[in-house]
Design a binder for these strands. Sequence first.
DNA 1: ATATAAATGCAAATAGTTTGCAATAGTGAG
DNA 2: CTCACTATTGCAAACTATTTGCATTTATAT
Lengths: 116, 116
Amino acid sequence: MIKRQSKKRDAIMEVLKTSKAPLSAAAIHEKLPAIDLVTIYRNLEMFAEDKIVKKFHFAGAEAHFEFQSEPHHHAICLDCDKVLHFKAPDKKIVKLLGLEDFEVDELEVTVRGKCK
Amino acid sequence: MIKRQSKKRDAIMEVLKTSKAPLSAAAIHEKLPAIDLVTIYRNLEMFAEDKIVKKFHFAGAEAHFEFQSEPHHHAICLDCDKVLHFKAPDKKIVKLLGLEDFEVDELEVTVRGKCK
DNA sequence: ATATAAATGCAAATAGTTTGCAATAGTGAG
DNA sequence: CTCACTATTGCAAACTATTTGCATTTATAT
């Protein structure tokens, strides 16, 4: 399935790129009401397959999508629900985990607490 | 709301305690078909509130629940979908993260890769 | 035993996401 | 530029996971 250019797809990507926090399909739809929610879902799914966008499931909530500029982790504030990004020395952490019989491809660290 | 004893609740807890992997509400219902799915959901939610059971959302799937014997992290095999547990030096990891302006209450580490 | 409120089951509602299909619109060939 | 081909979109409807309302059952304290 060869991809074509599409203004709607570009608009969705633009929203993702300019957002500092992960967005749900519904949140994107609010910013782009002219684009059908279904179209948004379909494009997000394509982005995720292409690994251009990362798809998450924070505790019990709907899926959230985020443009994957560079790998990072998430800190979620239990008070205000804000999601902060941070980078970490992944290799060192993986080493600290001391996993045997398991080859780590991806590391995902999430912390919950209070932002200040 | 004072809790009473309940055979069904105990049965659900027993299933959780004896399972090595996290279970979905539906999976528990399969093992305990006599208990209504709604009752299972309600009890799981109570367990989670009481922090006796941990609730997860692995990539795009339904919620999974797991008896919280002692804190640990998850390694998910991309080939066979098996979920392995492992412990890690949480404090050291949190220190490595070097988070400023954020007070960490919970650390959750998930790795994806290949088990052997 | 009895009253009180918690626990359960059933049906129905809700929320998030996916699918089928017909209409629309990029793209490459001529 | 025009045409054929098929990707993309919108709408309605299906689906899945989860929650809610309410009447019934059941545990527990008196």
